[in-house]
């Protein structure tokens, strides 16, 4: 039986929240594919930054099956509300907070996150479009689509537990090699788990973990 993941018909969204699309599905596909590896580390705490409708964190909560706890943040209050509604519709719960990136969960979650999920605003846009709020905060990524990503990368190693990992979405324009280089500089190794060509973009799921692990 395939693992249970979130259902689109139970996922809440409106015009002010980023609707699940190929990037969201791909992140969940990668999470499911990699789950046998993740499960070996007995994950207890999972965190998604920018949870939008909650489709991804809800899938993580279903995979964890009560053996762990999920946290989700979103800078858009309507997205945080949608996340909570999506979780409730699936009969699972997560800790949802409104806020920028880690939304006050640092420093307490530092060194405690076993699975960090991040579908960032990765679309290259003019810098002034970044962080305008509403649904555009879900995709406007500024220069090379990296302005929000680059605020997160230096923090990843501090957040992850010793056996923790990051799964994130990237597109070709983000310069995958440079992202891996940045992660390496902070003590994380990384590899591409999935690559797909969608309508107008080439999407990647990158996994990163502590360099001292195999």
């Amino acid at each position: 039986m395939p693992p249970k993941i979130a259902e689109i018909k139970l996922t809440h969204f409106d015009g002010e929240v980023y609707e699940p699309a190929e990037d969201s599905f791909m992140l969940v596909d990668a999470l499911v594919d990699d789950w046998p590896n993740i499960e070996k580390t007995s994950p207890t705490i999972c965190l998604e930054i920018g949870s939008g409708t909650g489709y991804v964190i809800c899938s993580a909560a279903l995979l964890l099956q009560g053996s762990g706890v999920c946290f989700a943040t979103d800078v858009n209050p309507r997205a945080a509300a949608a996340t909570q509604a999506t979780l409730a519709a699936h009969g699972v719960s997560a800790e949802v907070a409104i806020g920028d990136l880690f939304a006050g969960l640092q420093p307490r979650l530092s060194g405690q996150v076993d699975v960090l999920l991040f579908n960032p605003p990765y679309v290259p846009t003019p810098s002034e479009e970044v962080g305008r709020g509403g649904v555009s905060a879900a995709w406007a990524g500024g220069d090379k689509g990296r302005e929000v990503i680059d605020r997160v990368l230096p923090q990843v190693n501090r957040l992850l537990s010793a056996t923790g990992c990051l799964l994130m979405v990237l597109v070709q324009e983000n310069d995958i090699e440079e992202v891996c280089q940045r992660l390496q500089e902070s003590g994380l190794q990384s590899r591409v788990l999935l690559k797909r060509t969608a309508d107008e973009e080439i999407l990647f799921i990158l996994k990163a973990w502590n360099s001292s692990l195999q």
């Binding site: 800790e95 907070a97 640092q106 420093p107 307490r108 979650l109």
Partner: peptide, 20 residues
């Protein structure tokens, strides 16, 4: 918000040294 969340949240505002 459950107490689990309360236990993990801090005030990260600039200049605050003890936000938890």
């Amino acid at each position: 918000m459950r107490l689990l969340t309360h236990n993990m949240l801090a005030n990260n505002a600039k200049g605050v040294t003890k936000g938890f």
